[in-house]
Computed example of a mutant assay.
Amino acid sequence: MLSLLPGLTPRHQAPLLSYWDSPRSLLEQSPETLRALGLPPATRSAIAAWQAKRLPRELQQWLDHAREGLSRGLFSLLTWDDATYPPLLRHIADPPALLYVRGNPGALQGPQLAIVGSRRASRDGLDNAGRFARELSQAGYGIVSGLALGADGAAHQGALEAQGRTVAVLAAGVERIYPPRHRALAEALLAQQGVLISELPPTIPSEPQQFPRRNRIISGLSRGVLVVEASLRSGSLVTARLAMEQGREVFALPGSLGNAQARGCHQLIRDGARLVESVPQILEELTGWQQQSAPDLWPEPVAGAREDMDSQDTEPETPVQQSSSGESFLSAREQALLAVMGFDPQSTDTLCERSGLPPEELMQCLMGLEMAGVAYAVAGGYRRSSG
Rank of each mutant, 00 (worst) to 15 (best):
A252G: 05
A172Q: 02
L16S: 04
W80A: 06
P208E: 02
Q112R: 13
A49L: 06
P201L: 00
E58H: 11
R183N: 08
G7D: 08
D152I: 02
I92Q: 11
E207I: 02
W20H: 05
G255Q: 07
E249P: 00
L26A: 04
A171S: 12
G142P: 03
R165E: 10
T318I: 12
G158A: 07
S323Y: 10
D81K: 00
S137W: 02
E284I: 06
A49Y: 03
L59S: 13
D152L: 03
S323R: 11
E135Y: 02
G326W: 07
G125N: 06
I217Y: 08
H91N: 11
P96T: 01
P295D: 03
E327R: 08
S256D: 13
V302A: 15
A162R: 07
V378M: 03
G130I: 06
L98Q: 14
R354M: 13
D21W: 01
T9H: 11
D81V: 02
G258F: 12
D313Q: 15
R131W: 13
S278H: 13
Q364E: 13
Q193E: 15
M1S: 11
I47D: 08
Q61E: 12
Q60S: 15
H156V: 04
L26C: 04
A377H: 05
S234L: 09
L2D: 07
L196D: 10
S311H: 15
A294Q: 12
E334T: 03
P23L: 01
Y382I: 05
L4W: 00
E32Q: 14
V228I: 11
S325F: 13
M367A: 13
L185Q: 15
G73K: 08
S222G: 09
R54D: 12
L37Y: 01
L242M: 12
Q292D: 10
Y178Q: 00
I197T: 00
Q209V: 06
R383T: 14
D124C: 12
E32Y: 03
R35Y: 02
S25D: 13
V195P: 07
S293E: 09
A188L: 11
G153I: 07
V374G: 00
Q60W: 10
R248L: 08
G264E: 05
S206E: 03
F211I: 01
R123T: 12
L297R: 14
L369E: 05
W50L: 14
Q112P: 00
S76P: 03
Q261R: 06
F329H: 09
